[in-house]
C-alpha cells in the first residue's frame, strides 16, 4: 500500500515537472504545446548521448541536456509558433501536433527505434529503508527536484521583473507592450524555461524507466497535460497537485484494479473533475468588474 503511494508520488512528481512546463506555456502564450512531451524525449536522448557516448558525468550530462532542450524550445517557438501568433488557436494546435511528430521522426532517424538503456542519473544519494519499505534514491531525487522547481517557479513569477512581465503578457499582450514589455522575447523566455524543465523531466523519467525510444515522451506528455488540466491549467501549484494526484491514482489503479484499465481510470477521473469544477482543482477564478 505505502509502496504504491510512494511510487505514485514519484511518478506523479515527473508528471508535475512536465505539467509545469505545459502550464507555463499555456498561461503565458495561451497555447497548448503538444510537442512538449517530445522535448522530454529529446532531453532524454541528449543526456543519454552525453553520458554514454561522450562519457560525461551525470551532472554535466543533465546540464547539457537542459541546454539542448532550451535551444530546441526557443527554435520551435520561433520557427513554428511565432508566425502563427495571430492565427486561430486550432491552427496553432495542429502545428503543435505536427512539431510533435516531426521530433519523434527525427529521433527515429538519428537514434533508430532500438530502445536505449538509459543510465540512472538520479541515484547519487543513498536509498532510504524503513522497515520493509525501500524508497529508492531516484524516487527521493525526483520528489525533491519537483518541489524545488515548483517553489522556484512560484518565486520567479511572483517576485522577479521578468516573472511579473510574463503574468502581464498572459493577461493583455497589447497593454503589456504599452508598458515597454517585449512580448515576443517574453514568450521566448517562457518556452526556454518550459523546455529546460522538460530536460530535467526527461532525465528523471528515463532514470526511473530506463527504456528510451522515440515515443518515450508522448504518453507522459499527454498524462502531464491531463495533470495540468486537472489541477487548473495556468496554475503552478495546480500543475504540481494535478501531477501527483494523477501519478498516485495511476499506480493505485494499476495495483488494485487493472493494469490495462489504469489509463482509462485516470482519464475518467479527469472527466469527473472537469464536470464538477471546469476550471480544474486550483484553476484561476477570473474576477472581472462590470
Amino acid at each position: 500500500m505505502l509502496n504504491y503511494l510512494i511510487s505514485g508520488i514519484s511518478l506523479g512528481s515527473v508528471y508535475a515537472i512536465i505539467a509545469l512546463g505545459y502550464t507555463m506555456v499555456y498561461g503565458i502564450a495561451k497555447m497548448l504545446n503538444f510537442a512538449h512531451g517530445d522535448v522530454i524525449m529529446v532531453g532524454g536522448y541528449a543526456a543519454f548521448c552525453a553520458g554514454t557516448y561522450f562519457g560525461w558525468p551525470a551532472p554535466v550530462a543533465v546540464v547539457f541536456s537542459m541546454c539542448i532542450c532550451t535551444i530546441l524550445g526557443i527554435l520551435i517557438e520561433k520557427l513554428a509558433y511565432k508566425p502563427l501568433r495571430n492565427a486561430t488557436s486550432l491552427a496553432v494546435l495542429i502545428t503543435a501536433i505536427g512539431v510533435s511528430y516531426f521530433l519523434q521522426n527525427m529521433a527515429l532517424i538519428i537514434w533508430t527505434s532500438n530502445p536505449k538503456a538509459f543510465p540512472n542519473m538520479a541515484n547519487f544519494i543513498p536509498s532510504i529503508i524503513v522497515g520493509d519499505i525501500t524508497i529508492s534514491s531516484t524516487t527521493i531525487i525526483t520528489i525533491i527536484a519537483s518541489v524545488i522547481i515548483m517553489i522556484a517557479l512560484t518565486l520567479f513569477t511572483s517576485k522577479t521583473k521578468m516573472g511579473k512581465a510574463m503574468r502581464a503578457v498572459s493577461e493583455d499582450k497589447g497593454a503589456a507592450q504599452l508598458m515597454g514589455i517585449n512580448v515576443n522575447a517574453t514568450i521566448s523566455t517562457t518556452f526556454a524555461i518550459g523546455s529546460g524543465l522538460a530536460a530535467i523531466a526527461g532525465v528523471l523519467l528515463c532514470s526511473a524507466y530506463p527504456n528510451l525510444v522515440p515515443t518515450t515522451g508522448s504518453m507522459p506528455g499527454i498524462k502531464a497535460f491531463t495533470a495540468a488540466v486537472l489541477g487548473g491549467i495556468g496554475s503552478i501549484p495546480g500543475a504540481m497537485l494535478g501531477g501527483i494526484l494523477l501519478g498516485v491514482l495511476e499506480k493505485f489503479a494499476q495495483a488494485y484494479i487493472s493494469t490495462q484499465l489504469s489509463d482509462a481510470i485516470v482519464f475518467a477521473a479527469l472527466i469527473i473533475v472537469l464536470i464538477v469544477k471546469p476550471s480544474g482543482l486550483l484553476g484561476k477564478k477570473i474576477q472581472e468588474k462590470v
Partner: peptide, 30 residues
C-alpha cells in the same frame, strides 16, 4: 510599440486595461 515608451510617451488605453490579476503595486511596477 514596446520601444516607443522609452522615447518618452505613454498611452493610458481605452477601457483602462489594467492587469486584473496583478496587484496594484505590481501594475505600477510594470
Amino acid at each position: 510599440a514596446h520601444k516607443i515608451v522609452k522615447q518618452g510617451m505613454a498611452l493610458c488605453p481605452e477601457g483602462r486595461r489594467v492587469f486584473l490579476q496583478l496587484s496594484v503595486k505590481e501594475n505600477l511596477e510594470m
